[in-house]
Write a protein that binds this DNA or RNA. Structure first.
Length: 529
RNA sequence: GCGCCUGUAGCUCAGGGGAUAGAGCGUGCGCCUCCGGAGCGCAAGGCCGUAGGUUCGAUUCCUACCAGGCGCACCA
């Protein structure tokens, strides 16, 4: 783990804060709204006013005069008690040097506390192809997993196939009915793909429903894996719910919660007393007919996850499943685990529109946009970018026309274009650069760009901690903007040797960071477009 | 009724206690003798849903209310 370049500025400031009696108070450097105020600023003096019983501006003076660092050119008190800092050219050169030295590792390994994290995402019944709505789960979950890994956590990605239960029986029955030319059962699956799948299996229409179910599920599992791979959503393990029943895990989990005293019997069923553990109501674990509910399976799965040695199990679920939070946490407690080890992330729905008209609907009724179709229309990069650029707890609208456009209206190209431009400059350079020249002093556009590069490690750490990969997209967009401005204002090739060399180094450093950032959300950083 | 999420520019949305609230798209006006114009600059456009509270300081945290989305099975 490495301190970010911004923290290298904060260090001397914190030392000064400690000297004036603010031991342990963080500098928390921020960019002043007005660049005329300086490069970074700390509001620590304002927070110290009360404990130190002194005027904030006075404290700021004390801090400012004690700051001593080769990377800080000046420290000035301003406003109610801010200390405004100006970085030295040496710091800017240092930042570029660090990015180049750390290469694609730059920005990574910043997790405050590396953990073993298991992340389960997408997951669902293998009753049909992956839909475009589910794509948000895949884009978000996969980006989170990439972020965790990059931040320094040990990550396992898992897909949980709900291949047991009534939905699967309905799916099998629907396939069989279609093959026999009959109407699908009530509540059955009516999507157009059902007929294709039924035909593709080449099974005797009169084969037992069980066989239709098993063969259909196997085919859908393969189809789901193929589509997700195409979408660059990777998994280390494909877990089958059925296995939990077959190896006795479900029975074992039921015994465990019985043993901890969090169950009771009523109306011939076994209930989990979840209402006392934070859930809104009690839940049936074993039906009066003796069969376990899906909750029993969920409990067994929690045991499976946590007993495999993960510190935390992250679940990525759609907003229609938000009721799971209370249920799963209650289950974890009943099983004797710390509920904080179950980390449930809920993402809101995607409204897919085309020309202002909604195109998404339920899978069971058919007329649904599938992920493969979405990718055919707008491409993988645009789909990943569009689905992860906004906070996961924000309902989003995905306009097919906008994202399919091969022009400047399409936001994904803005970032990619910056990377391609950099690649073009590096291609055209006549000699390899070797870091910024020793006496180089950056111009304003360069200052701005380097600051962005310096802040990347913190952005990564925060994005991972807050489970918000959209911050990476926002960062990539900001950095791209900063580069485009630099490109316009500062010519690279053909300038004086020291300037050219330094700017080439800055270009290469920016290209590296852009590629890393886009890679974290599964978007490619092309050298040519 | 209860619970979760959300109300910020014309539209889609960033902003996880700090100074004059931002971006993309859209609108208007400019910028290619030079590294890729999928770009850059300038301008217009905001009671940050409403009302209270905490704080030196609130778009940010808390409460209530209003509005929208999603849920509240012995289905998964």
């Amino acid at each position: 783990m490495s301190r970010s370049a911004v923290q290298e500025l904060a260090g001397p400031v914190e030392a000064a804060i400690a000297e004036v009696g603010g031991d342990g108070v963080q500098a928390r450097l921020e960019r002043p709204a007005d660049p005329a105020h300086g490069d970074y600023a700390t509001a620590a003096a304002l927070q110290l006013a009360k404990p130190l019983r002194a005027a904030p501006r006075q404290i700021a003076e004390w801090i400012a005069e004690r700051i001593d660092s080769p990377f800080i050119a000046s420290a000035q008190v301003a406003g109610p008690g801010f200390v405004n800092l100006r970085a030295t050219p040496a710091w800017y050169r240092h930042v570029i040097g660090r990015v180049l030295a750390e290469d694609r590792r730059y920005g990574g390994g910043a997790a405050a506390r590396p953990q073993k994290i298991q992340i389960e995402y997408v997951s669902g019944n293998p009753t049909g192809p992956v839909t475009a709505s589910t794509a948000r789960n895949a884009a978000y979950g996969d980006s989170l997993a990439r972020l965790f890994e990059f931040a320094g956590h040990d990550v396992q990605r898992e897909y949980y196939f709900n291949d047991a239960g009534r939905q699967m029986d309905l799916f099998g029955a629907s396939l069989r009915a279609r093959a026999r030319g009959e109407d699908v059962p009530e509540d059955g699956y009516r999507g157009a793909y059902i007929e294709d799948v039924a035909r593709g299996l080449g099974l005797d229409p009169d084969a037992p429903a069980d066989e239709w179910r098993a063969r259909g599920a196997a085919a859908m599992v393969e189809d789901i894996k193929r589509t997700l791979t195409r979408f660059r959503a990777g998994f280390d393990r494909w877990f089958l719910e059925r296995s939990l029943y077959e190896d006795g895990s479900v029975a074992g989990a039921i015994e465990t919660v019985r043993g901890t005293g969090h169950t009771y019997e009523k109306d011939g069923a076994l209930w989990l007393r979840s209402s006392e553990l934070g859930d809104d109501k009690d839940r049936v674990l074993v039906r009066s007919d003796g069969t376990p509910t899906y909750i029993a399976g969920d409990l067994a799965y929690i045991v499976s996850k946590l007993e495999r040695g993960f510190d935390v199990a992250v679940y990525v679920l759609g907003s229609d499943h938000h009721g799971y939070i209370g249920r799963l946490k209650a289950g974890a407690i009943a099983l004797g685990y710390d509920p904080d080890r179950v980390d449930i992330q809920i993402y809101q729905f995607v409204k897919i529109v085309e020309g202002g008209k909604a195109v998404s609907a339920s899978k069971r009724r058919g007329a649904v946009l599938m992920l493969d179709e979405l990718l055919d229309v707008i491409g993988i990069d645009a789909a990943r970018y569009a689905l992860v650029q906004r906070s996961h707890d924000q309902v989003i609208e995905l306009d097919l026309e906008l994202w399919a456009a091969q022009n400047a209206e399409n936001p994904v190209y803005y970032c990619q274009y910056a990377h391609a431009r950099i690649a073009a400059i590096l291609r055209n350079a006549e000699r390899a650069e070797d870091g910024p020249a020793p006496g180089w002093t950056p111009e304003p556009a360069e200052v701005e760009l380097v600051k962005h590069l310096a802040e990347f490690p913190e952005v990564v750490a925060e994005a991972a901690e807050w489970r918000g990969p959209h911050r990476i997209v926002a960062y990539a967009q900001d950095t791209a903007k900063s580069f485009h401005q630099f490109y316009k204002q500062c010519r690279v090739l053909g300038e004086a040797p020291d300037v050219e060399r330094s700017r080439l180094a800055l270009c290469r450093a920016t290209g590296l960071v852009m590629a890393t950032a886009l890679g974290l959300v599964g978007v490619e950083a092309p050298d040519r477009m």
